[in-house]
């Protein structure tokens, strides 16, 4: 929402509302999103290629959880966010930028905060088990976009969504 103070913004059809995701490597964290009131996503297991962890932190309560997609709790949850949650937060900051992640989690990062893990460290977060199923099914739905066939019919509505270079 960089242009939000611009007086003409409200009257522009092409107002840019969401900055495009910044490129990042996807191997460790194939999926991260700010949705449903949570920072949530899926972290690949470091040891087993067939296993993923589902990690989330709620925006307004800062309750967090991490488990396998089969709901086995992560062993790293010892009173503080585990390394999966830290990795997730780091990748969220890479993808969305610190400002947007902080705003979503309703925190004001201080000047020394640069990474997602540092942002988590500054929270008064607490552990609260939640179901992995909701997040995992969103991930599967996300992946299913790659199965949607391409189109050769014009989509005129996409003129409202010009591709833009990531602001450097």
């Amino acid at each position: 929402m960089a242009d939000v103070d611009d007086a003409g913004w409200a009257g522009r059809s092409m107002a840019r509302v969401v900055a495009p995701a910044r490129p990042r490597k996807l191997a460790k964290v194939p999926f991260v999103e700010l949705a449903e009131g949570r920072l949530q996503g899926v972290v690949s297991s470091g040891s087993d290629v067939g296993r993923v962890y589902v990690s989330s932190i709620t925006a307004n309560t800062h309750a967090y959880h991490c488990s396998t997609n089969n709901n086995r709790p992560c062993g790293g949850l010892g009173g503080a966010p585990c390394k999966h949650l830290q990795t997730l937060a780091n990748e969220a900051v890479l993808q969305y930028g610190l400002e947007r992640v902080a705003r979503y989690l309703r925190v004001e990062p201080d000047a020394s905060t640069n990474t997602g893990a540092e942002l988590l460290h500054g929270l008064n977060a607490r552990h609260e088990p939640s179901s992995a199923a909701v997040v995992f099914s969103r991930f599967l739905r996300y992946l299913s976009y790659l199965e949607v066939p391409g189109s050769t019919t014009p989509l005129p509505e996409l003129h409202w969504f010009p591709s833009t270079r990531v602001a450097s």
């Binding site: 996807l26 976009y145 949607v148 391409g150 189109s151």
Partner: peptide
């Protein structure tokens, strides 16, 4: 026009 579905990343 040609197009495809994708994800944000």
């Amino acid at each position: 026009a040609v197009g495809a579905a994708k994800v944000d990343s």
